[in-house]
């Protein structure tokens, strides 16, 4: 399957992917409203996190593993592996906020929702026509969605 691969050699740590993620997952689809209103008011947050250490930085999000540890750990069936698309899907309604997936994920790619007992996880922008918003927004092509 096509996954989003970060390239730490050319990630410039601008965090624009996070802003793109927030906008793509907002109700308004408007960066200014998403960041100032929905983020602060409703806890909208990015599925992607830029991790930095010295000159190195890299933007991490769910790897949509072939054998996801989070799915195995999920006690409510909210996390599933979709056999057709290969995505690791998340059903917000089923999630009970036990954080088992957070502890199980070897990449630290799942985050707690800042206000609710829910998680925040990449959905590969499956319903976005242009593909993942982070990939489209990266100014240095340090994020690529491809088959490897």
């Amino acid at each position: 399957m096509k996954r989003v691969y970060p390239n730490k050699d050319y990630c410039i740590g601008c965090h624009i992917c996070e802003l793109a993620c927030i906008t793509a997952h907002s109700k308004s689809k408007d960066l200014i409203l998403a960041y100032t209103v929905e983020r602060t008011g409703e806890g909208l947050s990015s599925c992607k996190r830029v991790h930095e250490g010295g000159p190195t930085c890299v933007a991490l999000s769910c790897r949509h593993c072939d054998e996801p540890a989070c799915v195995a750990a999920c006690i409510s069936g909210a996390l599933q592996k979709d056999p057709e698309s290969g995505r690791t899907t998340y059903d917000r309604e089923k999630c009970v906020g036990c954080w088992s997936c957070l502890m199980a994920c070897p990449f630290g790619a799942i985050a707690r929702h800042p206000l609710e007992n829910k998680i925040v996880k990449c959905d590969l922008c499956f319903d976005r026509p242009g593909g993942p918003a982070c990939v489209a927004a990266c100014p240095n092509q340090a994020l690529k969605q491809e088959e490897r």
Partner: peptide, 18 residues
């Protein structure tokens, strides 16, 4: 712009592919 610099953090602003 990551051009006239060898600072690792700045130099990577130039992705050779791009």
């Amino acid at each position: 712009w990551g051009i006239a610099t060898n600072d690792a953090k700045l130099a990577k602003r130039q992705n050779p592919d791009v």
